[in-house]
């Protein structure tokens, strides 16, 4: 399985992502600079977290128009699997590969803490080993992760089982109190219609190593690696 992690100026979570991938696949993923215009034929493309282009204009907006992104979009159209985490999710929104928008957190604060996520769609290639209703505990670290979607988009997401994760409490209850950033309907991660693209604000890659608080994020990586094996 070939994985390419795309690097932009200001990206800072690529090594965490590479460690998670290495743990699951046994080999190092390729790191690809954003000026690259030929991605080859990766099985999985990862847009990692960070602050690409200093979050200028809107988070992810400049990265969405960088040279490599034309190729990422072309790969997406061919069905290449894509995972975007945090800033990577913001890029997927800005390229319109995923719908909606990510606004400033409702509290206006940068939030850095562990959150619980309820798996809403447990049958996708990204979530098959998690299973519907399961709860994982992973960190968030963002200032602009407040997912916004109008009613049309929300219905479309629900009708097609496109919500991957919602913020929940430790028992899996999706409540206002468990919503860290004001996201519409507690949405933490969504997929495209074909379920080949997953974008999420929380960091599953930071719950994959022995020295981290827990390893519940591993199941996500194991799911996609098994699907693409």
């Amino acid at each position: 399985m070939k994985t390419s992690i795309i690097l932009f100026p200001g990206t800072n979570r690529e090594k965490d992502m590479a460690m998670a991938l290495k743990r699951v696949t046994g080999h190092d993923p390729a790191l690809v600079w954003h000026k690259e215009t030929d991605l080859g034929t990766p099985d999985l493309i990862i847009l990692p977290g960070g602050f690409s282009y200093g979050d200028y204009l809107r988070c992810g907006a400049m990265a969405a128009h960088s040279p490599v992104m034309k190729e990422v979009i072309a790969c997406a159209e061919r069905g290449t699997r894509i995972l975007g985490v945090c800033n990577g999710f913001q890029m997927l929104i800005e390229t319109h590969l995923l719908p909606g928008a990510l606004l400033k957190n409702k509290t206006l604060k940068f939030i850095c803490k562990h959150v619980n996520l309820k798996t809403e769609n447990g049958e996708s290639e990204f979530t098959s080993k998690l299973g519907k209703g399961s709860v994982i505990n992973v960190p968030v670290a963002h200032g602009e992760g407040n997912y916004f979607a109008n009613d049309d988009i929300l219905h479309e997401l629900d009708d097609n089982d496109r919500v991957a994760f919602r913020y929940c409490d430790g028992n899996g209850a999706v409540t206002d109190e468990a919503n860290p950033n004001g996201s519409t309907a507690n949405i933490a991660g969504i997929m495209n219609k074909r379920k080949t693209i997953l974008g999420m604000m929380p960091h599953p890659e930071n719950a994959t190593q022995d020295w981290q608080d827990n390893k519940s994020g591993l199941l996500l990586f194991e799911s996609i690696v098994e699907a693409l094996a």
Partner: peptide, 9 residues
């Protein structure tokens, strides 16, 4: 439409 604004929001 292409860059400066996000017409969704």
């Amino acid at each position: 439409e292409k860059l400066l604004a996000n017409p969704v929001i």
